[in-house]
């Protein structure tokens, strides 16, 4: 898996040199927390015994991880359309490492972003739970979540014929993932049909667990179940990406 590391390092190097991308990500995070968080806090007040800032931080961190996954897929698509993938494909490295390198760099960026949002959120009055082990566990979950959704994005990117087509597909699943979840509102205020939908969305589990682990909001779903769901998402996402990539290779990259 040394090749995974080489590809990851290359993406991270390019990221660190691309001030536009880095600044864009950072500003996005800050704006979500400041604009959305502050506005909604005035409207909502407390949710589940915690202030709204602490309540919604996990949700917008998950959202930014989704955005990161879309970006990761875009990198693969761009490399594929420009033929750069071929350099990897003729090299004696496992096909999977190409995807893992990409997904790992996406997850790394998502972690940076999560940390930054956390920091801004704290400055804006969010309160963390007392236990640092919980923070760490939450970050691990965020990284796994990012890995899983990069897998889905990569699966689409491996098949798309153009950037436009890719965005169309991504948009289809991006929006419901945010709104059909517990990111912005608690489960128990939703009508029961929507609760069912929300419970099919893995984002719900990530957010619930992150709230419980990092912010001390009582969990509404069993923690272990949430961890299993997020882990399955990560494995399933990467598996799907691999299958999609392999089938694309049989035709032509």
């Amino acid at each position: 898996m040394y090749a995974t590391y080489v590809i990851w390092a290359k993406h991270m190097h390019k990221f660190s040199r691309s001030t536009e991308e880095a600044m864009g990500l950072a500003l996005q995070s800050v704006m979500w927390v400041v604009l959305f968080g502050v506005g909604m806090r005035g409207l909502v007040g407390d949710v589940g015994g915690n202030d709204y800032m602490s309540y919604m931080l996990p949700g917008i961190i998950a959202l930014s991880a989704l955005g990161g996954a879309v970006g990761g897929g875009l990198i693969l698509l761009d490399e594929r359309l420009r033929g750069i993938t071929k350099e990897y494909l003729v090299a004696p490295i496992p096909r999977l490492s190409i995807l893992l390198g990409n997904a790992a760099s996406t997850a790394t960026k998502a972690l940076f972003q999560a940390l930054l949002m956390l920091l801004v959120g704290l400055l804006m009055g969010a309160r963390l739970a007392g236990n640092p082990a919980g923070w760490l566990a939450a970050l691990v979950l965020v990284a796994l979540f990012a890995l899983g959704f990069s897998g889905l994005a990569l699966a689409i990117a491996a098949q798309s014929r153009s950037i436009m087509g890719y965005h169309g597909m991504i948009f289809l699943f991006n929006l419901p993932i945010l709104f059909a979840s517990n990111a912005l509102y608690p489960l128990d205020v939703l009508p029961s049909w929507m609760q069912v939908v929300v419970l099919f969305n893995p984002t719900t589990y990530l957010i619930d667990a992150t709230r419980a682990l990092a912010f001390g909001t009582p969990a509404t779903l069993p923690l272990l179940l949430s961890a299993v769901v997020v882990l399955s998402l990560a494995i399933g996402g990467v598996g799907l990406a691999y299958g999609s990539f392999q089938s694309a290779l049989k035709r032509n990259m």
């Binding site: 390019k14 750069i84 071929k86």
Partner: peptide, 13 residues
């Protein structure tokens, strides 16, 4: 060793 028909290089490296 292989070179491809189109130029396949990362512009930012």
């Amino acid at each position: 060793g292989v070179t491809f028909q189109e130029i396949v290089l990362d512009r930012d490296l």
